[in-house]
Design a protein around this nucleic acid. Structure first.
Length: 422
RNA sequence: GGUGGCGUGUCCGAGCGGCCUAAGGAGCACGCCUCGAAAGCGUGUGUGGGAGAAAUCCCACCGUGGGUUCAAAUCCCACCGCCACCGCCA
C-alpha cells in the first residue's frame, strides 16, 4: 500500500499514477475523505477513552456512596466509549479497504501506455537464420516428442489443458537449469530457499496478488490456503512483521518453487506447448533493501537475468514495460524476452519488478537505523522459469535431425553436450 | 486425531481483576571511574496511531479475534502457534 502521508501531500501525483495505469483516480479522493473521517473518529474516541481511564482509577480508590455515584457516571462513559470506538473501527476498516485498492506510485521513467507501448531497451544476440542453414525450425512440442522430453498429451489426459510431463532429458534439463541457477545465485550472495507454496491470505494480500491479479490465483476454499503463483509471495512474506537490522541489507534470497496460475482469460492463447501452463517450477530472486538503493538493485537483478540468458546463448531483448501493464505493486518492470524461432518473435521469459515500499508496508517489514524505523524496499526478478527456458533452449539450439546442442554453461550440470532423439 | 502444559518488551522471566505508568535480570547505548579495559556506579533503552508551530500530551499494543466489567496481561469463548506423551501415517 502507499503511504497515507504521501497521499495527503501529493494527491495529484497519486491520481496521475492511477490514470496512467488505467486505474481509477477517483479512489484518491475517496481515500482522502475516508482518512479525514477516520482521524476525526480517533480524536472523538480517544477523548472519551482518556476520561474513562481517569474515572476508572477514581472508582477503584473510592468507597461506599461515593463509589456508587462514580459508578453511575462511569457506566454512561463506558457506553460512550463503546459507541465511539465502533465508529472509529468502522472508519479504520473503510480507510484500509480503499487504501488497499490503490496501486503503487508509478516511476515517472516508465513508459506510459498499454501492453503494446513498451520501450525496447536493448537487443542482445542474433536470431539464427534457419533458411540459410537449410532446414525449417521445429517447434518445442515437436522437439519435445522427438527427444521424449515433453509430454503434453499425457499431461492433458491426467490433469487437463495446460499441464505436461517433463520426462527423460526434459526432466534432467530442469534439474540442470535449477542447479545452474542456484549455484550462480549462491555465488552472487543469494541465500537459496525452498519455500512453502501454500500460503495464508495475509501473505497473498501482502504481496498484492489479491487485487487485479486475484483471478489468476488458485484458492483452496476448504482450508483457506492460496497456491502461490510465484515464490515472490513466500519470499516477501518471509520477513513479515519483522524489523530487520540495517547492516543485514541488502538481503537477497533465491527461491526455488513450483508456481501455480489459473491463466484465466487466456483461452485460446498459447494453447500449444508449454509456454503458458498452470504449473511450473521457477527460481526467483528476491531482494530486501533500502528505498534509496532500490533503483540500483533493480538494475542488478536485471543484470543477473541477462547473465543467465547469455549463458544459455539465447538471443533476447530487454523491454521497459508500459504503465498500463504493470502489477499493482510495481513502480517499474523490465522483461527479458527470448527469441522464439517458430513464432518469429520475442516472448517473455524473465521479468524483474521494483516494488519499493509497497509490499513491505502491507507486510509490515521494516529496518532500523540511527534515525528510526523505516519500511524496506522489495524487488523481485526471475532467474529462470523452467518451461519457457526449455522452449527457448530447444528451439534456438536445435539441429536438422531434431537433436539439440546444450549451452556450454549447462553441460557440467547436465552431463551431455547434445540432446539426442530418443 | 487424543490428552496435558505453555505463548508477556531485544532476550530470559515475574505478575493471574484497579499503585501494571509490566517487577527482577541479561543485553545494548551514553556518562562517571581508569593509562586503557574489565568490574562497579548512574542514566536511558519498544511498536503503531492521534493532537500540536514546538516543548509536549493523549490513545492502543502482554499469540490472534470476540465477550464479561466502571476497569482485563489477569476472568470467559473461539482460533492460531509451540512443547510433551499417546494413536495413526511415512
Amino acid at each position: 500500500m502507499i503511504d497515507l502521508k504521501v497521499l495527503r501531500e501529493e494527491a495529484e501525483a497519486v491520481r496521475n499514477s492511477q490514470r496512467v495505469r488505467g486505474e481509477d483516480p477517483e479512489l484518491v479522493d475517496q481515500l482522502l475523505a475516508a482518512d479525514d473521517l477516520r482521524r476525526n473518529a480517533i480524536v472523538e474516541f480517544e477523548k472519551y477513552r482518556a476520561e474513562q481511564n481517569i474515572l476508572s482509577k477514581a472508582v477503584g480508590a473510592a468507597k461506599g456512596d461515593e463509589k456508587s455515584a462514580l459508578l453511575e457516571n462511569a457506566k454512561e462513559l463506558a457506553a460512550k466509549v463503546k459507541s465511539t470506538d465502533a465508529i472509529r473501527a468502522e472508519a479504520e476498516v473503510n480507510t484500509q479497504k480503499i487504501l488497499l485498492k490503490i496501486s503503487n506510485l508509478i516511476d515517472s521513467n516508465a513508459p506510459v501506455g498499454g501492453e503494446a507501448d513498451f520501450v525496447v531497451l536493448e537487443e542482445i544476440g542474433t536470431p539464427r537464420d534457419f533458411a540459410a542453414e537449410g532446414f525449417e525450425a521445429k517447434d518445442h512440442v515437436e522437439l519435445g516428442k522427438i527427444l521424449k522430453a515433453i509430454d503434453t498429451e499425457r499431461g492433458a489426459k491426467v490433469s487437463g489443458a495446460r499441464f505436461y510431463y517433463l520426462t527423460g532429458m526434459g526432466a534432467l534439463l530442469e534439474f540442470a537449469l535449477v542447479n545452474y541457477a542456484i549455484s550462480s545465485a549462491t555465488k552472487a550472495g543469494f541465500i537459496p530457499v525452498i519455500p512453502p507454496v501454500l500460503v495464508k491470505p495475509a501473505a497473498m494480500e501482502g504481496t498484492g496478488f489479491l487485487g487485479q491479479a486475484a483471478e489468476n490465483v488458485f484458492h483452496l476454499e476448504e482450508d483457506d490456503f492460496y497456491l502461490v503463483g510465484t515464490s515472490e509471495v513466500p519470499l516477501a512474506a518471509y520477513h513479515m512483521d519483522e524489523i530487520l537490522d540495517e547492516s543485514s541489507l541488502p538481503l537477497r534470497y533465491a527461491g526455488y518453487s513450483s508456481c501455480f496460475r489459473r491463466e484465466a482469460g487466456t483461452y485460446g492463447k498459447d494453447t500449444r506447448g508449454i509456454i503458458r501452463v498452470h504449473q511450473f517450477d521457477k527460481v526467483e530472486m528476491f531482494s530486501f533493501c533500502k528505498l534509496e538503493d532500490a533503483a540500483a538493485e533493480h538494475q542488478r537483478l536485471l543484470q543477473w537475468e541477462k547473465d543467465f540468458l547469455n549463458a544459455m546463448e539465447i538471443p533476447f531483448r530487454v523491454i521497459d514495460v508500459a504503465s498500463g501493464d504493470l502489477g499493482s505493486s510495481a513502480i517499474r518492470k523490465f522483461d527479458c524476452e527470448a527469441w522464439i524461432p517458430t513464432q518469429g518473435t520475442y516472448r517473455e521469459v524473465t521479468s524483474t519488478s521494483n516494488c519499493t515500499e509497497f509490499q513491505a508496508r502491507r507486510l509490515n517489514i521494516r529496518y532500523k537505523d540511527a534515525t528510526g524505523t523505516k519500511s524496506v524496499a522489495t524487488l523481485n526478478g526471475t532467474l529462470v522459469a523452467i518451461p519457457r527456458m526449455i522452449v527457448a533452449i530447444l528451439e534456438n539450439h536445435q539441429n536438422a535431425d531434431g537433436s539439440v546442442n546444450v549451452p556450454l554453461a549447462l553441460r557440467p550440470f547436465l552431463g551431455v553436450d547434445t540432446l539426442l532423439p530418443a
